[in-house]
Amino acid sequence: MTQAPIISFKGVNKIYSNGTVGLKDISFDIPRGQFLVVVGLSGAGKSTLLRTINRMHEITSGEITIEEEPINDYKGQSLRLLRRKIGMIFQGFNLINRSSVERNVLSGRVSYYPTWKTLCGLFSKADREMAVRSLQRVNLADKLYTRADELSGGQQQRVAIARTLMQDPKIILADEPVASLDPLTTATVMDTLQRLNREDGITVIVNLHSVALARKYADRIIGLRAGQLVYDQPIAAVTEADLNKIYAEGAEA
């Protein structure tokens, strides 16, 4: 591989203040443009791993570099600029329910403006058009002025993706994005993420519970158990038995 990885973990440990081990000696690289799926049982550290990438969780030791820059010491403005290029999708969508879809989508753009302009809602015409285009990409442009809580779960998750697109992200982190959706809307959301990965070259990292989904969408699958990296294979080398083992052995412990 000639190109430098976009994200790199070097001996990362995370111990929570109550002594629980979140991550244990994690080291691996994520090349630019990869669709990476993280599997593992609940509590294995998948969410923690994801949130260390945009520093929503702090690590205890080790180093994470993004585009070859160590991010551990980012503060204030530099931290906000880091987060700007990393979109995040949540299991619970995390939309502002009482606000319109437009306002939710535009809120993905606020880091491009000084605070006072965001308070007055002074978004440029170009960005308002960008909001419509983002919604078009998730097929929801007609819902622009609908209140977010009037949408179905699948629609809300797509609004959340549109919000992320407003960041113009290089990386998208998705934390169990389909865990509260039915199979049909699951496919829509996963397809959308795949399209962004292929068409825009955005590096996508998704936490999933479903082995079948992982095999369908991933370029590469990594497995976590009790905070440790126990599995790491490109999709061509992944077998059903391997994946079942990640879950089965965890269940025994």
């Binding site: 945009n54 929503m56 931290l79 906000r80 600029l81 880091l82 987060r83 700007r84 990393i86 979109g87 995040m88 949540f90 995390n94 939309l95 502002i96 606000s99 306002r103 809120s107 993905g108 606020v110 880091s111 605070t115 965001t118 308070l119 959340a160 919000r163 960041q167």
Partner: peptide, 17 residues
């Protein structure tokens, strides 16, 4: 959490979320 992950400032987070 969503607004924080977007890179919004504290005041913006309060205003929007």
């Amino acid at each position: 959490e969503a607004l924080e992950s977007v890179g919004a400032s504290k005041v913006t987070i309060i205003w929007y979320a």
